[in-house]
Amino acid sequence: MTEPTTWAQEPHLLNEGEFLREVHSFNFWFEAVSGYLEERPFGYAPDLTDGPMDPVQRDRLITTLCNYCVGEAAALEASSGLIRLAPNHHSRVFLATQVVDEARHLEVFLRRIEELGINDPETEVRIRANAGLEEFRRRLLDLVDRGDWDAADFAQNVLLESMEDTVFRFHADTADPITKEILNGVVADERRHLGFGENDLGRRLSNDPDGQRRLSAVRSEMDPLVLGAFEGVYRDLGIRREDHPKLGRHYLDAVERLGLTR
């Protein structure tokens, strides 16, 4: 039974400082993930089982999951490096939770690949990795190594996270029950990551046209790598070519809100 709603319960009544302290806290993260991950040790309820799967379909799913692993491994390495570059403690605490999320995503995707019949998922990921996504990973880590917070935050938490969020959501709608439940849990995490990236950059860039121009250049360099990589995933998922642009719209909306249009 839900308790009656009162005006005083509204989250919208918090002042901005209280709101940020709440949503960036470890406790918020812990209570949130407990809601959708409890009793799902590898991202899905243990009583779910695989039905029959066509061998071609299975092979395509393995390739798709291998590329998800490339993206998640990149995000794991980059977000842990970003903790050192973060501009304040709120951001450091938040990034610590993101590191855990990314590690979990990598783990559940590797497990799923193994369940689909691959004995050595790590090697399989290397074999099936999309070259564009690997190049994106190298450039993202280079931005982190150079200490470029804004560019790395953009590349990881806006570009990569938006594209992953869109593709994972689309994939979840058509996936087998186990992959679907794993993806739904990952999407729930991605909301926090992409929101953090856009809001952090939005605050920092709102009065900084030079910063916007610089990130627009970073964007035009890195966009094709991720967009190209996801084209391959779309093919494997059987998405019609004419529907591909629609899938980039979520990301393009974010770019426009941030003033990073070319």
């Binding site: 319960q9 709101f19 709440e22 929101g195």
Partner: peptide, 20 residues
């Protein structure tokens, strides 16, 4: 969602993605 109907100018928070 809110306890009361929205009007232009209302501040809302999206906690799932931490947006104001």
């Amino acid at each position: 969602r809110s306890y009361r109907e929205y009007r232009p100018g209302d501040r809302v928070y999206c906690m799932p993605c931490m947006s104001r």
